[in-house]
Design a protein around this nucleic acid. Structure first.
Lengths: 157, 157
DNA sequence: ATCAATGCAAATAATTTGCAAAAAG
DNA sequence: CTTTTTGCAAATTATTTGCATTGAT
């Protein structure tokens, strides 16, 4: 959220590259500058577009090759909303356990965190013999606008 | 779980077809017999295999064309575990709000239900202006075997 | 220099679809 | 009979990959 936190996340990723003896190329620069300057969820295609605005030479292949590095670093999370392409969420560094509510009509996405739910998850998992590593909770529902007007101004959020 | 409940679910699907003026072909018979005689999560490919055991003439295309009907009927749920193919869960008729815990090593899947979590989800969603339609909660963790032995006998569950 | 990283274009793989033939109601 | 459904094979589409070249260190 705060710009400084995003900067910190970016630096963490650069460190991650260093630890693995991976190089900080100009294309990767453009890509991570794009990733860590937004709070929005994005697709590979969107990331390509944003990155190309910063550096014309970024190719689709490089975006696809960088995405796994971003998720392995733990700073970006792959998400699936049932579409035939993946979404990526750049807000995991700051809020590793956040959840999502998605409007079934306009697909507006709201993030939230709940300690209580987290506690219950741990409790139940433990009872079933598991140790929790990560969780993903996705609620689909009807947003205010949809409830009131019967439809949303789609994508207009 | 209980065979009678599965039978009921199968009948509901047949009714669903009727309401839409869709026909109960022998291929669809084989497919839904397969779907409603298991509690396991399955892939399109698995369903094709099971169905072909009952009726050699079932084609991949028909399986792929029947799957959306099954999910639209609300009796089967599409799930995504981050693989490049989808899983389907036939236990939604009986337990529409159940959640999953998946072992990160052996991919053993355990289902559970929690009223408390459900209540919290409703509460939080309402506070954020949403009315809950459905939820999916997926916990990834380490199962007993993985914790004790450091690895699971993969797939051996 | 050395080895990782790139762009390109071709490959992959799950899912979808057009079409003529078959079958349900 | 009419309309839906089928199998087949070809199409689609996001993502991945081989390879010769480029660029970081």
């Amino acid at each position: 959220m705060a710009a400084t936190e995003k900067q910190a996340a970016k630096q963490k990723f650069i460190d991650f590259l260093g630890q693995r003896n991976l190089r900080l190329t100009s294309q990767r620069q453009a890509i991570i500058d794009s990733v860590f300057s937004t709070d929005e969820h994005f697709t590979a295609e969107q990331l390509l577009e944003w990155s190309r605005r910063r550096d014309k030479s970024v190719s689709r292949a490089t975006v696809y090759r960088t995405l796994p590095l971003l998720t392995e670093s733990g700073l970006v999370r792959e998400m699936d909303f049932g579409k035939d392409y993946k979404f990526y969420d750049p807000n995991y560094a700051e809020h590793p356990n956040h959840s999502h509510i998605i409007c079934q009509d306009c697909e507006r996405i709201v993030e939230f965190e709940s300690d209580k739910i987290e506690r219950l998850e741990n409790e139940i998992s433990h009872r079933l013999g598991f140790e929790v590593k990560s969780q993903r909770l996705q609620i689909t529902g009807r947003c205010e606008e949809l409830k009131k007007l019967g439809a949303c101004r789609k994508k207009a959020c």
